[in-house]
């Protein structure tokens, strides 16, 4: 049986993406949740790279792992008196709900995906680095969303700063 490198890589990264995803569901405390998420997102980054989306893989690492996760960790630290607080017993029951729902959703989706029977013949073959192409597309075909997102980031930044800023004297914010 011929086991080539890309197959091994796929399964390795798939495992890295999926196993921690379920640990996010099971983990006992919120800090572990965040670190399991980090692992899962790294797995996804690896999958991007397997599919030849090298730029996306890097962005995933930089923005998600470097940005969003740090943000989440900050959030945890600033809002938890005891971050390692164990989950209370009454919460456990809802994990079962989560597992059951998740399993049902997966069963349905898997049935649909296999039922549709996608062909993988077409599509963009491995065309080497995508950074240039993506950059070009963002500044030509997709210039509109690109600019729009910059406005979005601007007001989100200001708005979030306004909301999160500690109140000083109360009346004037």
């Amino acid at each position: 049986m011929d086991i080539n490198m890309s197959t091994v890589m796929f399964f390795a990264f798939a495992l890295l993406a999926v196993f921690p995803a379920f640990m996010v569901l099971f983990a006992k405390d919120i800090v572990r949740v965040a670190f399991w998420l980090l692992a899962s997102l790294s797995g996804v980054a690896g999958l991007y790279i397997i599919m030849g989306a090298d730029f996306l893989g890097l962005t995933q690492v930089l923005v998600y792992i470097g940005g969003i996760l740090v943000l989440i960790l900050f959030g945890i630290m600033m809002t938890s008196k005891d971050p390692l607080l164990k989950r209370a017993r009454h919460v456990e029951r809802s994990v079962v709900t989560g597992i059951v729902t998740g399993a049902l959703v997966f069963a349905a989706l898997a049935a649909v995906i296999l039922g549709i029977g996608f062909e993988s013949g077409k599509g963009r073959a491995d065309g080497g680095a995508t950074t240039t192409a993506l950059g070009e597309a963002l500044l030509t075909d997709y210039i509109l969303p690109f600019e729009v997102v910059s406005v979005l980031l601007l007001f989100v930044l200001c708005g979030a700063a306004h909301v999160a800023r500690r109140r000083k004297e109360g009346a004037h914010a």
């Binding site: 890309s6 919120i30 989560g98 959703v105």
Partner: peptide, 30 residues
Amino acid sequence: EIGLNHFLIVSALLFSAGIGVVISRKNAIA
């Protein structure tokens, strides 16, 4: 051979895990 369906199944697993987390967790950050 690794094909589209493999990735889709991985994605479906991630999606289901996410739905499970959203339903079961009470902590907003989680």
